[in-house]
Design a protein around this nucleic acid. Structure first.
Length: 604
RNA sequence: GGGCCGGUGGUGUAGCCUGGCUUAACACACCUCCCUGUCAAGGAGGAGAUCACGGGUUCGAAUCCCGUCCGGCUCGCCA
């Protein structure tokens, strides 16, 4: 080894010890005589002192050190002189007095400052282009190390409970449902393709049939859909499947695991104990989304009844057309300027709403009872009766000084717009406790959802999810009312995990598929392997798949997006500026794969 | 595919709305010199930018207009 100990491990107990260190020059402070170097390696950093009187040769070399040079230093650990300790540093009580130094490798001046946080500070394209330097920065380095610790903890935790880690193929078969597949052309079988797995769903069910009872995998999943701050082409999930279990077993395991991770692996994070369990209908009503941010209130109120009895055309009309009217109160926002209101309206419209009704209650109003016309600030103030304003305020919880935000229209649109408006206002008003991770389970999802585009019922989770036992007979008669044994883990407005108790009976599985419009031939063609397996003693089973990337954005400090917890992520356009991915390939490679590129203009 | 925001020395920003007082400013980094206890060390000096790219308007464009590319956010999409 070129070093005898790591920089960040040095403590007062090493006082007097001779050490050899190797690492990167974090910063240098050259006083003309004495030279200080902060030397960094993967463990942290320590101050090295070079004295020209006692170590002239080493000091001469150190004077030429520059940022990010790789150097080796021999010296003696000692307690820092009285008054020069640095409480900011873990190693701040000691320093290394250098006797020898050597340059192992020089560095060009880095394109950005590696010694400081890069997230949110440096252009992300530049960071990705020099990802090896970006990851060298302490904050990104810490993110990767914490991710490692979390994953290791998961592995130990599950191993302790009898789970077996099993790998499943990356080259699998395309299934037409769900997201767009990444395809890999077959060289040996001309004209055919493998698909990268969107998840190991069917495989893990087959492992249950295979009798493993408790399976897990840190599984990479691929989806060729547009990328976002919380979505990459490939994401990693903790894939879990268990036999002979019900909902409580799966949710209890996850709650125990995530609570332990927060308690034992990370610091400075608070959670709700126990995790709230909320029914889908309840969260949709109160938050307008199935992944609510529970760090703050701003709950939505149903105002349809008041709207229906009102003379305000946009409110009453929406209800008469079969829609709903909902809203919430933004505390202290009654004084929003015209421009501010316009901004909120534009926000709502960009989220699909027809418009946004705002009603401010002047802070000068003595109370709701003492409300006068001049206290009501709204574009529709003239059409509103005072009693209606009172009723709306009562429902939304608005008082003097507050601003009611109300959307009317179809239920989906109203909920979508208001849920995002709620998140926006929660952020603007700083209502969310940054140290809180508000984990919660959402349960009792509908089994099916209506797809407007195809004018057909589709699975709201996936088609292997079991309905409630007592709802089997509703499938054909009242599909919208069928509840599923499906659950999600959410936190801070993000979906972190999704899972269900599966169907383990072939007849029942076919019944769901048949309802979804599959012919017997299609079932056999697409799901023959699973259906066949269900006929050979498939145990009752269920599972869940928590996303690790999103979880890490909650557990780390300074993660601006999912890209900050992934070592080598892609840009929103799906490119990697470091490697220049994706890239053309040799014509010979294409020929072997029986692939021909059709220029865009000639494409159909 | 749609909407919004952005692109100015190595980095981060200002200037842009209201075109000319700009020889494009500031901080950090970089280079040289000074400096023996700093830890965002300090001091003095210096170098470094065809203002993303292409076209247009104008006597004159970083600044106004159009297009393209790239990045981010977002709608669609993501069983």
């Amino acid at each position: 080894m070129l070093k005898s100990i790591s920089c960040g491990d040095l403590r007062p107990e090493h006082d007097g010890q001779s050490v050899t260190l190797a690492g990167w020059v974090h910063r240098r402070r050259d006083h003309g005589g004495v030279v200080f170097i902060d030397l960094r390696d993967s463990s942290g950093l320590v101050q090295v002192v070079f004295h020209p009187e006692t170590a002239p040769a080493a000091t001469e070399i150190a004077q030429h050190f520059r940022a990010e040079w790789v150097v080796q230093v021999e010296g003696t650990v000692r307690k820092r002189p009285e008054g020069t300790e640095n409480a900011e540093l873990a190693t701040g009580a000691i320093e290394v007095v250098a006797t020898e130094s050597e340059v192992l490798n020089e560095s060009k001046t880095p394109p950005f400052d590696v010694s400081q946080q890069t997230q949110g500070q440096v252009d992300e394209l530049l960071r990705l282009g020099y990802r090896y330097l970006d990851l060298r920065s302490a904050s990104m380095h810490d993110n990767m190390v914490l991710r490692h610790r979390v994953v290791q903890y998961m592995r130990r935790f599950l191993d302790d409970r009898g789970f077996v880690e099993i790998e499943t193929p990356i080259l699998t078969r395309s299934t037409p449902e769900g997201a767009r597949d990444f395809l890999v052309p077959s060289r040996l079988q001309a004209g055919t393709f493998y698909a990268l797995p969107q998840s190991p769903q069917q495989l893990k069910q087959l492992l249950m049939v295979a009798g493993f009872e408790r399976y897990f995998q840190i599984a990479r999943c691929f989806r060729d859909e547009d990328l976002r701050g919380d979505r990459q082409f490939e994401h990693t999930q903790l894939d879990i499947e268990m036999s002979f279990v019900d909902e409580d077993d799966v949710l209890g395991l996850i709650e125990e695991l995530y609570t332990a991770i927060v308690d034992e692996v990370v610091s400075g994070r608070r959670i709700l104990r126990p995790f709230p369990r909320l029914a889908y209908d309840d969260v949709m009503a109160r938050y307008g989304t199935d992944k609510p941010d529970l760090r703050f209130g701003l709950e939505l109120a149903d105002l349809s009844e008041i709207a229906a009895a009102s003379d305000v055309r946009i409110l009453r009309g929406a209800v008469e057309a079969g829609g709903i009217v909902k809203g919430f109160a933004a505390p202290g926002c009654a004084a929003y300027s015209r421009k501010g209101i316009d901004g909120l309206i534009a926000f709502a419209k960009s989220r699909g709403a027809q418009g946004l009704v705002t009603i401010g209650i002047d802070g000068d109003a003595p109370s709701l009872e003492g409300l006068e016309t001049e206290h009501v600030r709204s574009a529709i103030a003239s059409a509103l009766k005072l009693d209606e304003v009172r009723a709306l305020a009562q429902r939304t919880g608005a008082g003097p000084g507050d601003l009611m935000l109300i959307v009317a229209g179809g239920a989906t649109v109203v909920n979508t717009a208001l849920s995002q408006l709620r998140n926006e206002m929660g952020e603007r008003l700083g209502l969310a406790d940054a140290t809180l991770i508000a984990f919660a389970f959402v349960t009792d999802f509908p089994l099916f959802e209506w797809d407007e585009e195809t004018a057909a019922w589709g699975p709201s989770h996936h088609l292997f999810t079991s309905p409630w036992e007592e709802h089997w007979d509703r499938i054909e008669t009242d599909p919208a009312a069928v509840r599923a044994r499906h659950y999600d883990l959410v936190a801070n407005g993000m979906e972190l995990a999704s899972g269900s108790i599966r169907i383990h009976d072939r007849q029942k599985q076919e019944r769901v598929m048949r309802f979804l419009g599959y012919t017997n031939e299609q079932m056999e063609e697409r799901f023959g392997q699973l259906l066949g397996a269900l006929e050979y003693g498939a145990p009752p089973h269920g599972g869940i798949a928590p996303g690790i990337d999103r979880l890490m954005t909650l557990l780390t400090d300074h993660a601006e997006s999912i890209r900050d917890v992934i070592a080598f992520p892609k840009t929103q356009a799906g490119t990697d500026p470091l490697f220049g991915t994706p890239a053309p390939v040799q014509a010979s490679q294409l020929a072997e794969l029986h692939i021909a590129i059709v220029p865009e203009d000639d494409a159909i």
